[in-house]
Design a protein around this nucleic acid. Structure first.
Lengths: 198, 198
DNA sequence: CGGGAATGTTGTCGCTGTCAACACAAAGGA
DNA sequence: TCCTTTGTGTTGACAGCGACAACATTCCCG
């Protein structure tokens, strides 16, 4: 029972872990990953400066939790985008478009998921579901003898690069005002690689 | 006359600005952008903790200097890779391959160039030479009526995404042990988009 | 009802970015 | 030659941070 609901201030917060994650996401949205501070998160959660250490051994663990949340959402979005799509290449493209939309919809999560602070963390191993999804789709898009990994890397690089460029503000903002804009741009980029830039 | 050359310790360093940049690059290579510390840079340059402020108004300005150095090198590498290549699409691909090689050869610079800490900085405007180069090449690769910006974005996204994935360690390391490996991988990814993943 | 086990607090440490005040050195005009 | 100006490096200070230890409170389960 969080304080904010109860009104009265209880010694125990109730769901401090989730509150800290939310505060961290908000803080990163305001001041970037570099501007994240455990003490400020604690302040916003109405809790003392050392309380976060009961839930996260160190600052990076908080970032890791955000990343895990993001990878879960991404796998979900990718799965949803691919259901009903039958052609292998169409599935890859659907995943890519959903990838870009996810990045634009959850910019903080996407940035944290691929921030270097998580260097040696769990996402390095290929067992991330969102990545597995991609490799599966890729393996069906190439011949049985071709290395599926190469196809997966190829199919991942394009939406990943586009998403990064958008988040970094390198794409003219009028092209990506809304998630729908970003999705349309992603489709156009895919189309360009399918036809024009051959 | 730097202290290290003179042997004797002189009050004035001689080229502290460059020394600080080099120290910062080394530090980031060891501990990531988050692990960069002006005081540690000063220590490694054999100088007091506040000396860097005579050359950089704040920490971000040091990162900005690294980024500018990187953008210069990138434009240089891109120009070199495209000279002698005549076909418009071949030029775009040559730029992309050089882009990936640059990122692998100067990982710290590439990471800083696209780190969020530089948010509102100069690289946002499209007047970066390395970006101009890309737009020019793209405008020749599409029909005269097609928007060159879209082609540029498309041609940028793929190598940018691949470079990011490599730097983040998301590509199996045996594929990218050396810059030559990375360059080969980049060519294969381009080839895959040209033929297979249509 | 009682005693761990969680969870939150207070206090502390060293480190950092940044500023202000001061010290030294090089350059150039009198 | 001297002496002032300007650039550069130093010392000292302050607040904020991550992290730890010691302590307080509450929850839960036997």
């Amino acid at each position: 029972m969080p304080n904010s609901i109860r009104g009265a201030s209880t010694y125990h917060h109730g769901d401090l872990r989730a509150a800290l994650i939310d505060a961290a996401v908000a803080l990163i949205a305001e001041h970037g990953v570099q501007g994240l501070s455990l003490r400020e998160c604690a302040r916003r959660a109405g809790v003392s400066h050392a309380a976060p250490y009961r839930h996260f051994a160190e600052k990076n663990d908080l970032l890791l939790a955000i990343a895990q949340q993001g990878f879960g959402w991404l796998a979900e979005a990718g799965r949803a985008a691919m259901t009903g799509v039958t052609g292998a290449r169409e599935r890859l493209e659907a995943y890519g478009v959903a990838y870009v939309r996810f990045a634009v919809t959850h910019p903080v999560h996407h940035r944290v998921m691929f921030s270097e602070a998580l260097g040696g963390a769990h996402t390095q191993k290929g067992d991330e579901p969102s990545f597995q999804l991609l490799v599966e789709a890729a393996s069906q898009a190439v011949g049985p003898d071709d290395p599926p990994l190469l196809a997966a890397v190829s199919a991942w690089s394009l939406p990943h690069g586009l998403a990064m460029l958008i988040l970094d503000g390198r794409i003219p903002p009028e092209l990506v005002r809304t998630p729908d804009d970003a999705e349309r741009l992603a489709r156009e980029v895919f189309a360009m690689w399918r036809s024009g830039l051959r």
